[in-house]
Design a protein around this nucleic acid. Structure first.
Length: 647
RNA sequence: GCCCACGUGGCUCAGGGGUAGAGCACUUCCUUGGUAAGGAAGGGGUCAUCGGUUCAAAUCCGAUCGUGGGCUCCA
C-alpha cells in the first residue's frame, strides 16, 4: 500500500523507473514518456492487469503502454467495439434494452440485447454498416471515463429505460468504483478499459447472432446476442478472417472423413469408431506415453469396464456424478460403466498392506471410459461419450507430493515437446468456496504444488478458487499452429478418495497413515488429443505418426511388377507403404496422394526400374530425385526414430 | 439439458405437393500416360425415423433420433 503523499514507482519495460504522483493516469505517464506515445496509446497495463488510460493510478508496479502495434491492443479495441455495437443497435432499434458485453473472449466481442426477435443476417449487415458510419463520422471523438455514485448511475439508467443495466448495477459489489464510459451520445455502465478515441477501432466485422439466457441462467429470460470482431486495421481483420477460414479447413471432423481416420454412427451417439488409419495414429500416441511410463516408474494396469454400484457409492461418483453415468442391470444386480479409473486403482492399492517403503505407487490405465455427456455438449473427437485418458494415479506420502509433481511436470512437458507444443501455459487452481478438508491441509497442498512448479522453473498463473472440491490442481494448456489454446494435462491432488476407500500405508513409526492420491493425465483424452493433433497438423502427420508413409506410383501398368518388388522390399524394412497401381495417369495418382497427405510419393518407370531406384516426391511438392531403396529406407528410419516433424 | 439451424446415393451439395439430380468416389472398357484430375459407359438413393394433412408427401405440419452453432458444462 502506498500513502497519498508518496510517489508511485512505475517500472517500464526497459527497466527504467518513473515516479508519478498518485492519481496520475496512465495517459499522463504515456504523454510524459513522449507526446507521440501519448497520442498513439490505446491502453496500458499495471502488473499484468489491463488498465484504462484515464484510470487514476494508486499503486506502484510494472507498467506498460500499448499502441495499435501491440497484439494486446486488440483487447481494448474489441471491448470498445462492443460499445460501438451497442450504440449502433440503439440507433437502429431504439426500443432495445442493452445488457452487457464481455471481456476476455479471444478475438471476438459480444453484446446482449433485450429484443423481441432474433437478429437476422440482414440486421447484422445494417448494424455493421451503422457502426462503420458512426466510426467515419466521429473523427477524433474520445471515449470519456466518468466515475459516478451508485445512486446517480441507477437514476441515469432508469431514466434511459435501461432496466437491465439497473439490474447489473446491483451485482456490482458494495465499495467498488462505478464507472461509465461515454462516446458521443452513448453511455454505458462499464469497468473499461477502452481505447482513447473511437478512430482507434480500425476495422469491425459482425460475425453472427444467437440467443442466450440472461446471466447464463436457464430460468431467466432470453436475450439476443451479437458477436463480432475488431482490429486496429483492416489488414489485421483480414488476417484474422483468413485464419478462421484455415481453421475450418483443418476441422478434424472433415479431415477424419477425408483421410478415413474415424467415423460416427447414430447407433452410438458421440462415440467414435476409429478406422485402421485412425487407430494406427491413436496407438502411436499410446506408445509414446508408454515409453514415458517405463522411464518415469509407472505400472500399467487393466481394470474392469463395469463395476457394482457399491463401488461408485463408496467413491462418491454415484452421489455426485450419476447423471453422467451409464448403468446396467443384470440378474437384479446393478452395475455402472466406469466414467473414471480412479476407484479401480484404489481397489488395487488396497489388495495388500502397503509400507511407506512402497510409496510412491504409480498406476497407469488406458481404460475406456463412458460418460453420458448431455446432448448438445458433444463435438467431434473433442468431447465424446466413450474415450480413453492417458490416465494415471500416484499414491504417495504428503512429503512426496512436491517431488512427484515436479516429475509430472517434466514428463508432461517432454511429451508436449514431441508434438511441437513448446510453450505450455500452466495454471494452479486453489481452494474453491465449496471444498472439503481443513484450511491447513489445503494450504500445504497448494504450497507443495507451487513449490514443485517453482523448482521446475515454470511460470504459472494462479486461478483462485478454481480447484476441485477435493484438492488443488495444475492444468496445462497449449497453443496450436493457428493460435488456439487447448487444455490438455491436469494434475490434481486428492485427499478425499483415499479417505473413502480407507487406504493406508504403514509408516516408519509402525502406525497406519493415509496416502495422498494424485490424479493425472497428460494428453487429457486420447480422442481429444488426436482431434487437436489433426487440426495442428492439418492432417499432414509427421512421418512417425503417418499411417501410410509412402505410396508407390508406377507410371504405367508395365511397371507393376517392379512396383510390387519395391513395396515388398520397403515393407520388409519396416516402412508403411502402399502401391497405387490403378489404371490412371501419374498426375491423377499424385493428386490423390497429396490429398491423402502421404509424406512420400515414390514414382517409378523405366529409368527407375533399370537403375533399381525410386524417384521421391515429398508431399511438400519438393522433388528428391532418384534414390536407391537403401537410401530411402535409411531416411525414413532416421526421421521416424527421431519423431522428427521434418519429412 | 436449453435456444437456433440442418438431415437428399460413400463424400460435397442442388432441387422441391404429382413417387429424384450434379460433381467427386465406385465398377467396366479404351488409353500405357513422368510429378495435383485422359476419355467413354455403368451400378448405386423407398430424400433420417415415425405419425398427421392431402386424391397425391422427399417436399407441408408434429414428434423422435442424429448432426452443427450458441448457452451451460467439461478430458
Amino acid at each position: 500500500m502506498t500513502t497519498a503523499t508518496e510517489l508511485l514507482r512505475l517500472t517500464l519495460p526497459d527497466g527504467s523507473v518513473r515516479e508519478v504522483a498518485p492519481g496520475s493516469t496512465a495517459l499522463d505517464v504515456a504523454l510524459a514518456i513522449g507526446p507521440r506515445l501519448g497520442r498513439d496509446a490505446v491502453g496500458a497495463e499495471l502488473d499484468g492487469r489491463r488498465i484504462d488510460l484515464r484510470e487514476p493510478l494508486s499503486e506502484s508496479g510494472a507498467f506498460r503502454v500499448f499502441t495499435a502495434k501491440n497484439p494486446e491492443a486488440g483487447e481494448f479495441i474489441r471491448h470498445s467495439a462492443e460499445h460501438l455495437l451497442a450504440d449502433a443497435v440503439k440507433r437502429l432499434f431504439p426500443e432495445v434494452e442493452i445488457d452487457a458485453g464481455r471481456k476476455d473472449h479471444g478475438e471476438k466481442f459480444q453484446y446482449d440485447f433485450r429484443f423481441p426477435r432474433a437478429f437476422a443476417p440482414e440486421d447484422l449487415e445494417r448494424i455493421e454498416e451503422e457502426m462503420r458510419r458512426i466510426l467515419a463520422a466521429s473523427g477524433d471523438l474520445a471515449f470519456e471515463r466518468i466515475e459516478i455514485s451508485r445512486e446517480a448511475a441507477a437514476r441515469l439508467f432508469a431514466e434511459m429505460g435501461e432496466r437491465l443495466k439497473v439490474e447489473r448495477l446491483k451485482d456490482i459489489p458494495e465499495g467498488e468504483r462505478i464507472t461509465l464510459y461515454r462516446h458521443g451520445a452513448f453511455t454505458d455502465l462499464c469497468r473499461g478499459p477502452h481505447v482513447q478515441r473511437l478512430s482507434q477501432i480500425g476495422a469491425v466485422k459482425l460475425l453472427e447472432a444467437g440467443s442466450v439466457y440472461w446471466k447464463g441462467d436457464e430460468k431467466n429470460e432470453r436475450l439476443q446476442r451479437i458477436y463480432g470482431t475488431a482490429f486496429a486495421s483492416q489488414a489485421e481483420l483480414d488476417r484474422h478472417l483468413e485464419q478462421a477460414e484455415q481453421a475450418r479447413a483443418r476441422d478434424h471432423r472433415r479431415l477424419g472423413t477425408e483421410l478415413d481416420l474415424f467415423s460416427f454412427s447414430p447407433l452410438a451417439p458421440a462415440m467414435p469408431f476409429f478406422h485402421p488409419k485412425g487407430t494406427f495414429v491413436y496407438n502411436q500416441l499410446v506408445g509414446c506415453v508408454r515409453e514415458l511410463y517405463s522411464r518415469y516408474g509407472y505400472g500399467e494396469v487393466l481394470t474392469p469396464q463395469i463395476l457394482d454400484l457399491e463401488l461408485w457409492k463408496t467413491s462418491g461418483h454415484y452421489a455426485n456424478y450419476n447423471d453422467a453415468m451409464f448403468f446396467v442391470e443384470v440378474d437384479e444386480r446393478e452395475f455402472a460403466v466406469k466414467p473414471m479409473n480412479c476407484p479401480t486403482h484404489c481397489l488395487i492399492y488396497a489388495t495388500r498392506t502397503r509400507s511407506y517403503r512402497d510409496l510412491p505407487i504409480r498406476y497407469a490405465d488406458f481404460g475406456r471410459l463412458h460418460r453420458y455427456e448431455r446432448s448438445g455438449v458433444t463435438s467431434g473427437l473433442m468431447r465424446v461419450r466413450s474415450f480413453c485418458q492417458d490416465d494415471g494415479h500416484v499414491f504417495c506420502t504428503e512429503e512426496q507430493i512436491e517431488s512427484e509433481v515436479l516429475a509430472l511436470a517434466r514428463m508432461i512437458l517432454e511429451l508436449y515437446a514431441t508434438f511441437g507444443f513448446e510453450d505450455a501455459e500452466i495454471e494452479l487452481s486453489t481452494r474453491p468456496a465449496k471444498s472439503i478438508g481443513s484450511a491447513e491441509l489445503w494450504q500445504r497442498a497448494e504450497a507443495a504444488l507451487g513449490a514443485a512448479l517453482d523448482k521446475a522453473g515454470l511460470a504459472y498463473r494462479t486461478n483462485p478458487g478454481d480447484g476441485a472440491f477435493y484438492g488443488p490442481k495444475i492444468d496445462f494448456h497449449v497453443r496450436d499452429a493457428i493460435g488456439r489454446s487447448w487444455q490438455l494435462g491436469t494434475v490434481q491432488l486428492d485427499y478425499q478418495m483415499p479417505e473413502r476407500f480407507e487406504l493406508a500405508y504403514v509408516g516408519a513409526d509402525g502406525a497406519e497413515h493415509r496416502p495422498v492420491m494424485i490424479h493425472r493425465a497428460m494428453f487429457g483424452s486420447l480422442e481429444r488429443f488426436l482431434g487437436i493433433l489433426i487440426e495442428q497438423t492439418a492432417g499432414a502427420f509427421p512421418l512417425w505418426l503417418a499411417p501410410v508413409q509412402a505410396v508407390v506410383l508406377p507410371i504405367s501398368e508395365k511397371f507393376s511388377a517392379y512396383a510390387e518388388e519395391v513395396r515388398a522390399a520397403l515393407v520388409a524394412s519396416g516402412v508403411r507403404v502402399e502401391v497405387d497401381d490403378r489404371n490412371e495417369k501419374l498426375g491423377y495418382k499424385i493428386r490423390e496422394a497429396q490429398l491423402q497427405k502421404v509424406p512420400y510419393m515414390l514414382v517409378l518407370g523405366a529409368r527407375e526400374q533399370d537403375e533399381r531406384t525410386v524417384s521421391v516426391r515429398r508431399r511438400s511438392g519438393a522433388d528428391l530425385g532418384a534414390v536407391s531403396l537403401e537410401a530411402f529406407v535409411a531416411r525414413v528410419r532416421e526421421l521416424a526414430a527421431a519423431r522428427s516433424r521434418e519429412i
